[in-house]
Simulated assay, not measured.
Amino acid sequence: MKHRLMLLLLLGSLSNSALAIVIGGTNLGVFGYPDHSCRKPHKPIKPYSLNSRWEVDSYNRQVDSYNFELQRYIACMKEYLENASNDMKRIEEKMEEAIAEAKRPSF
């Protein structure tokens, strides 16, 4: 819904600005715009009591693993969003090109 609203706002605010080439990754696919494939990690469940050193170490390893997976998830989402932004810029470029072509006189 947000993307549709942004596209509508974009359509209404196009100007005769200089065209630019977008360099960067893309999410565009053959079958439409894909969902992200980032896997959100689950927080480890802290036991009610940590009675032994083994239980403490085990829980600490789970927390470390969660923190590592969380950083991977954040990086994955950032890349997806950056690529989506690049794709919106590419679409805007094509729209501006079409507007410029339509405004050119035909002979």
Rank of each mutant, 00 (worst) to 15 (best):
Leu28Thr: 15
Ser52Asp: 01
Ala75Gln: 05
Asp57Tyr: 00
Arg72Leu: 04
Leu7Asn: 03
Gly32Asp: 12
Glu79Cys: 07
Leu14Phe: 09
Ala20Tyr: 15
Pro44Gln: 07
Ile45Glu: 04
Leu70Thr: 01
Lys103Ile: 15
Ser106Asp: 13
Leu81Cys: 14
Ile21Thr: 14
Ile74Gln: 02
Asn16Cys: 11
Tyr33Asp: 13
Asn86Gln: 02
Met6Trp: 14
Met1Gln: 08
Phe107Lys: 15
Phe107Trp: 14
Glu92Ile: 08
Lys2Asp: 13
Leu70Met: 03
Lys46Met: 13
Leu70Pro: 00
Lys46Gly: 10
Met6Pro: 10
Arg4Ser: 07
Asp64Tyr: 04
Ile99Phe: 03
Ile91His: 02
Val63Ala: 01
Pro34His: 02
Leu8Val: 08
Val56Cys: 06
Val63Met: 01
Leu19Ile: 09
Cys38Ser: 09
Ala102Gln: 06
Gly24Arg: 03
Ala75Gly: 02
Ser15Lys: 11
Lys78Trp: 04
Ser15Cys: 13
Leu11Lys: 05
Ser52Thr: 08
Glu82Ile: 02
Asn86Ser: 03
Asn27Ile: 15
Asn86Pro: 04
Ala102Ser: 10
Ser49His: 12
Arg104His: 13
Lys89His: 05
Cys76Ala: 01
Glu96Ile: 11
Phe31Glu: 08
Glu101Phe: 14
Ile99Val: 12
Asp57Gly: 03
Glu101Asn: 09
Phe68Pro: 04
Lys2Ala: 13
Leu19Phe: 05
Lys46Asn: 06
Leu70Glu: 00
Asn67Ala: 07
Leu28Gln: 14
Arg61Gln: 02
Arg4Leu: 08
Ser58Asp: 07
Ala84Asn: 08
Met88His: 12
Tyr73Phe: 06
Asp57Gln: 02
Glu79Pro: 06
Ala75Glu: 06
Gln71Asn: 04
Arg4Tyr: 09
Lys46Leu: 13
Arg4Pro: 09
Ala75Asp: 10
Tyr73Leu: 10
Ser13Glu: 09
Glu69Asp: 05
Glu93Asp: 11
Thr26Asp: 10
Pro34Gln: 06
Pro105Ile: 14
Leu28Trp: 13
His3Tyr: 11
His36Ala: 09
His42Lys: 15
Asp35Ile: 15
Glu93Asn: 06
Ile21Tyr: 13
Val22His: 02
Gly32Met: 11
Cys38Trp: 00
Met77Gly: 05
Tyr80Trp: 07
Asn60Ile: 04
Pro41Met: 08
Arg90Phe: 00
Arg61Ile: 03
Asp64Arg: 03
